[in-house]
Amino acid sequence: MTPPAFLTGEPLLWSAVLLGLAFGFLLHRGGVTDPDVIVRFFRLRDFTVVKVMVTALTVGGVGVLLLRETGLATLQIKELNLLAVCFGAGLFGIGMAVCGSCPGTGLAAAATGRLDAMAALAGMMAGGIAYALAFPWLAAEVIPVGAFGKVRLPDLLGLPEWACYLGLVAMTAGIFRLIARGERR
């Protein structure tokens, strides 16, 4: 099945700018462009990041499920290359705790005048160049280790689709309750 292409050519590029505009605006309004908020998230002292991310992925998850059911969208699953994803995410987490930003919030923070985020962006350019230069070796030696392909949680857990989404919503409700209880103290 081919995904329906509503947008191609110039309208597609405009949609990138407009959706990006909304995304950047919301990152700043949500407070997650503030490096203190990110650092306090990792120190479990501020739950703004959790609130924003968990709400986004639950609303988005149910929405995309409905789109898929009605044939309006197809999934875009990234491959689970276990070693590369774990090692990459490990480096990423260290970088995120040091910077107080991730690529998206760092770019957004730099645009609001944060010089440290601009330095982080410069570092990202260096890291991106290093990665491209190391890519032939990584592609041969690291990425194929533990390559499971485009697996999803329903495949992995052997549970039906609806049960996994129900689990997602239940997890979200549980996290919200925990946060509410924690903040009341």
Partner: peptide, 28 residues
């Protein structure tokens, strides 16, 4: 930190957006 961020994100083939939101919401 920024250098680690993008090197790590490319190795993992995604960051907080591509994996953390877009990936998780598809139950990837």
């Amino acid at each position: 930190g920024g250098a680690l961020l993008l090197f790590g994100a490319r190795l993992a083939d995604g960051c907080t957006s591509g994996h953390g939101i877009s990936g998780t919401l598809q139950l990837a």
